[in-house]
């Protein structure tokens, strides 16, 4: 139907929405609801409370800055991914995907924006947690302990930054695959709590399984990153790559493909 006088849309005055603006919108969407705001604030609050309890209860010898960071990182590890899951699944669970993807029909750009927004939020929370850990180390020093202030770079990076980033990526992948908030949160806890326990029990029962566990279970494979000398061996790196592909890359790819095709109703 090529009507000769078919009026065409003059799009010269409206450039494509810049990615930075989309990232800004996604950050705003993550914290502009009561649920989102309180969840993000409670993560910081929880770090505060847990570190307070830790400072009161732990023996003086275990109040080094590195210990504080590890505790804070543990708290973040459980809750940061949920913030990301809520950010992604909200489009479907709260149905605002209809509007999001009408305003930006290039869905891959929205996925990228969410990903970057998630990392930006996580970085903010991590910095806050880092500062809180500093404060409580100072408290420990003021209350009689003689904490070690220096931290090993690999502990800081592996145990705090990398571990949390991996958790965020896994949460992101799970969220896109399931596109449902409660299911995403449950799946993340199954992945992060139940799977490693199950792998531990099976490994204890069967030495055969103990050998293959680090090749198939991501949490088990990550252990060398956070323990010992924080320097995974060559074989351990290979295990990380194999399980990372299985638990991270494959779900991320499938989840992205799903999000690109899903019919938002």
């Amino acid at each position: 139907m090529n009507t000769p006088l078919a009026p065409t849309l003059d799009v010269s005055s409206t450039p494509r929405t810049p990615l930075s603006r989309l990232v800004g919108v996604e950050i705003r969407k993550a914290i502009d609801t009561r649920a989102g705001f309180w969840f993000a604030s409670s993560i910081v609050g929880l770090v505060l409370v847990v570190l307070l309890i830790y400072t009161l209860a732990a023996p003086d010898a275990a109040k080094n800055f590195g210990d504080m960071l590890q505790v804070a990182g543990g708290v973040l590890g459980y809750f940061l991914p949920i913030l990301i899951i809520m950010l992604v699944t909200g489009e479907q669970s709260q149905r605002n995907g209809l509007v999001t993807f009408t305003l930006e029909p290039q869905r891959s750009r929205v996925v990228a924006a969410k990903f970057l927004a998630g990392i930006a939020l996580a970085a903010t929370v991590m910095v806050l947690a880092f500062l809180i850990a500093l404060v409580f180390t100072a408290v420990a020093a003021a209350t009689g302990a003689t904490p070690e202030w220096s931290v090993e770079g690999s502990l800081l990076f592996n145990g705090f930054v990398l571990a949390n980033l991996i958790g965020i990526f896994v949460g992101f992948a799970i969220a896109m695959l399931l596109m449902n908030t409660p299911a995403g949160i449950v799946a993340y806890f199954v992945y992060s709590l139940i799977l490693p326990i199950a792998a531990g029990i099976l490994s204890a029962l069967s030495s055969g399984f103990e050998k293959i566990a680090p090749w198939i279970e991501f949490n088990t494979a990550q252990t060398p990153l956070f323990t010992g000398d924080y320097q995974p061996s060559g074989e351990e790196w290979a295990q990380l790559v194999v399980t990372g592909t299985l638990w991270l890359v494959v779900p991320l790819v499938l989840g992205t493909l799903r999000l690109l095709r899903i019919e938002f109703k």
């Binding site: 849309l9 799009v11 409206t14 450039p15 494509r16 929405t17 969407k29 502009d32 609801t33 009561r34 649920a35 909200g90 709260q94 149905r95 605002n96 995907g97 209809l98 509007v99 009408t102 305003l103 029909p105």
Partner: peptide, 21 residues
């Protein structure tokens, strides 16, 4: 269409929004 909201206004389902906003 770049920035399509500037050219095409759409109302498909007025309740398809986050109810907490």
């Amino acid at each position: 269409i770049p920035n399509p909201g500037r050219h095409v206004g759409t109302l498909l389902d007025a309740s398809a929004q986050h109810v907490g906003r």
